[in-house]
Simulated assay, not measured.
Amino acid sequence: MADEILALYCSQVLGQIKPANLFTISNEAYDVDYLIKIWNEDFNKIDIYFTLISKRKNTSSILCFRKANLLESINSKQTKIYLTSCGYQTNNLDTCIKCLQKKLLANNFPHEIGLFLGYPYEDVMGFIENNGKNYLCSGYFKVYKNKQEKLKLFEMYNKVRTEYKAMVDKNIELKNILVKKN
């Protein structure tokens, strides 16, 4: 069951297409703390990490990320400038993630989270500037520029998810595949 969750929600990170994914699972259906512990034991050695971003009564949100890729992403020029203006210290990933956690707990959703998740800068800014309206299309995120390019990106996201799901359906443990690839 744990590999099914990873294939569904983390395949783009596992496949090195995105720096991070955020997903929510049921606290009633899963022992979230145990899952995070096991996943970190299995995947930290290949630079994939899981951290609890927020825990509510019924659900928990988990950030899956590759440290090196996420650090590179949040420190790209435009992203770094914007995140710094929002109060993040992008040079320290742990501090940056803690700041994101605090913002999420404050019940004022930080839309800059898209920058952590590897969404294109222009689309995150378009979302913020347009209050989530006036988008060209919607998929994994709302698109404000370069629609055709983003539709191809969505196809790539879907393809990698399908590939990882097929591995799980064949009872192939993802940790074994990823250790061999890295």
Rank of each mutant, 00 (worst) to 15 (best):
D47M: 11
N44Y: 03
I74Q: 12
L71N: 12
L71Q: 13
S73N: 10
N75C: 09
L71M: 09
I62L: 07
I53G: 01
K57D: 14
L52N: 07
S61I: 05
I62Y: 04
C64N: 07
I62H: 03
K55C: 08
I53D: 09
E72C: 04
K45H: 10
I46D: 01
S60C: 12
K67M: 08
I74S: 11
I74W: 05
T51D: 00
I62Q: 03
T51N: 00
S61C: 05
L70P: 04
C64M: 04
A68Y: 13
Y49W: 01
I74A: 10
K55M: 05
T51R: 00
Y49L: 08
K57G: 11
S76V: 06
N44F: 06
C64E: 10
R56D: 10
N69E: 05
R66A: 09
F43Q: 06
R66E: 07
N69C: 02
K55P: 02
K45L: 10
S76Q: 12
K45Y: 07
K55Q: 13
S61G: 01
R66T: 10
C64L: 05
L70E: 03
Y49T: 11
Y49H: 15
R56I: 07
I74P: 09
S61Y: 01
S76A: 08
N75T: 13
K57Q: 15
A68Q: 12
Y49I: 04
K45Q: 13
L71C: 10
L63F: 15
A68P: 02
E72G: 03
T51Q: 01
L52S: 09
F50V: 01
R56C: 07
I62T: 06
R56N: 14
F43H: 05
N58Y: 15
I53R: 00
L52H: 04
F65G: 03
S60W: 13
L71K: 06
N75Q: 12
S54R: 06
I48G: 02
F50I: 01
L63D: 06
K57H: 15
C64S: 10
E72H: 08
K57A: 14
R56E: 12
S73A: 12
N58I: 12
S73E: 09
N44P: 00
L70F: 03
N69F: 13
T59G: 08
S76K: 15
L71W: 00
C64H: 04
I74D: 11
I74F: 04
N69Y: 13
I53E: 06
S76Y: 06
I62G: 07
S61R: 04
R66K: 12
N44V: 11
I46R: 11
F43E: 06
I46V: 14
I74Y: 05
I48W: 02
I46T: 07
T51A: 00
F43R: 05
I48V: 11
K55H: 05
L71S: 13
K67I: 05
I46Y: 10
I53N: 01
N69P: 00
R56V: 08
F50D: 00
E72L: 07
L71R: 04
K55E: 08
R66Y: 04
K55Y: 04
S73Q: 13
A68S: 13
C64V: 09
R66M: 07
K55R: 14
F65Q: 04
E72F: 05
T51S: 01
Y49E: 13
N58F: 15
E72Q: 11
L71A: 06
I46K: 12
K55T: 09
K45I: 14
S54M: 06
F43Y: 13
T59E: 15
K57S: 14
K45S: 14
L52M: 07
